[in-house]
Design a protein around this nucleic acid. Structure first.
Length: 115
DNA sequence: CCATTGACTTAAG
DNA sequence: CCTTAAGCCAATG
């Protein structure tokens, strides 16, 4: 039997797991992850989970942006420009903190991993 | 316990 | 695409 705490633990854990599965040069949104985990209204919690992702060395948080393709979490990296640089390294064009061709690089877990 | 905040999303104009 | 308003839920003070 699962308790509420177990559900929360699963949610956070699943967030990290999905983020690790994001392919190279692709990005996704907090809402897409939340929706994939069955909590479309808890997109903020995905962001909070990412804030906690400092404990996880293999979580590419730079591949997670908001639904507009805007690098809202860039300021939480070691340096504000770190996120943009990492994305550019992966071939993602970023201009004015915004991902260009967002529709091309967007990776929806609920679509790519099937429902 | 209540108020505020935040790496968000959606809807309406 | 931009702005405003409201909803959402956990963490923090």
């Amino acid at each position: 039997m699962k308790s509420v705490k177990d559900e929360q633990f699963d949610f956070f854990t699943n967030v990290y797991d999905v983020v690790r599965l994001i392919p190279f040069g692709r990005v996704t949104s907090y809402g897409a992850i939340a929706r994939y985990l069955g909590a479309p209204r808890s997109s903020r919690m995905v962001g909070w989970a990412m804030n906690n992702s400092h404990s996880l060395p293999d979580v590419p948080a730079h591949r997670v942006v908001n639904r507009n393709g805007l690098l809202t979490g860039k300021m939480h990296f070691s340096t504000p420009s770190r996120m943009e640089e990492l994305l550019k390294q992966e071939g993602v064009d970023v201009v004015d903190d915004r991902i260009q061709q967002f529709n091309e690089v967007f990776w929806d877990p609920s679509c790519e991993l099937s429902i």
